[in-house]
Amino acid sequence: MKLGSYSISELTNKTVSKNGIILLVGPFSVRLRTRDRQFVSTLRDLYLDFSIGSADKQIIDFHIDMFSPPNHRRWIKPQINFSIDGLFPFSPFSVSHATPLFEWGFNWCIARNAQNYLLLHAAVLEKNNRSVILPALPGSGKSTLAAALSHTGWRFLSDEFCIVNPRDGKIIPIPRPTPLKNESIQVFRNFSPDAFIGPLFHNTRKGTIGHLRPPPSAVEQQNNPGIPHWIIFPKYQSNSDTNLISLDKSFSLMKLASNAFNYEIQSEIGFKLLTTMVDKCTCYNLVFSDLNSAISQLNTLADND
């Protein structure tokens, strides 16, 4: 059953219960418990097409609780905590920011625990059964570009984690909502007016954030792995012409490795996976300022390569 097939009340009844709800997101199953109805409602909007599991059918990776801290501030300025098995990795947030807190906390769980995969910091999309990896370097404009591609015929595999399976070198999709930041929210709304963006959260540690709901087809195909074919380092540069420049492989590898979540921890496995991947991929720098022009360059690449 999908999240969207339950009403907000039905979902809240589940999240306040002892067993919570179990979200099946990419390769992970997450048990979530919370009493915050507003948060449940936003979660439903953003994870609409994801399935819900049950404790007797799924082994759970992360048990996440989102509850208010038991203190006097409850009445003045309500707060909310993210916790996993008694650990509180963050200071409490204002209760109105429960959604970004959950998203960051979920990232934290993956980055900390999912060491059975090589975790690159990159968005992943796919065309003609070939995946493009867009590494996230500061100011790269990766999320905006990935979001735009996902609404123009590319399959969306991931925004934040490029999860590489050490068994076969393929990419395991995790098509979670994409957090769009500040100006890019409007940029994306202009680009794709019909796309669903959840409520805007102002004054977070990353400014204003709005989450883009992933396309239903991306969620439907979340169990089909991707095959790495291109590694493209996007670089947003205002007023620049779109320019796709091929890149040296050893340089690309160092850039990917130093920006990864757990390349060091993977040791020799990581080196072998990443050299194999870079070997098979063609690597580029992509300088761009106009989304349409960048996308048409990438489409040309995908259709002719």
């Binding site: 199953s29 082994i59 625990n113 999912a114 060491q115 059975n116 060091e264 993977q266 040791s267 496995i269």
Partner: peptide
């Protein structure tokens, strides 16, 4: 699923 989680823990130990 259990194997995967154990592999993850073993990777940290190996590192």
């Amino acid at each position: 699923k259990v194997k995967d989680n154990i592999d993850a823990a073993q990777r940290i130990v190996d590192y």
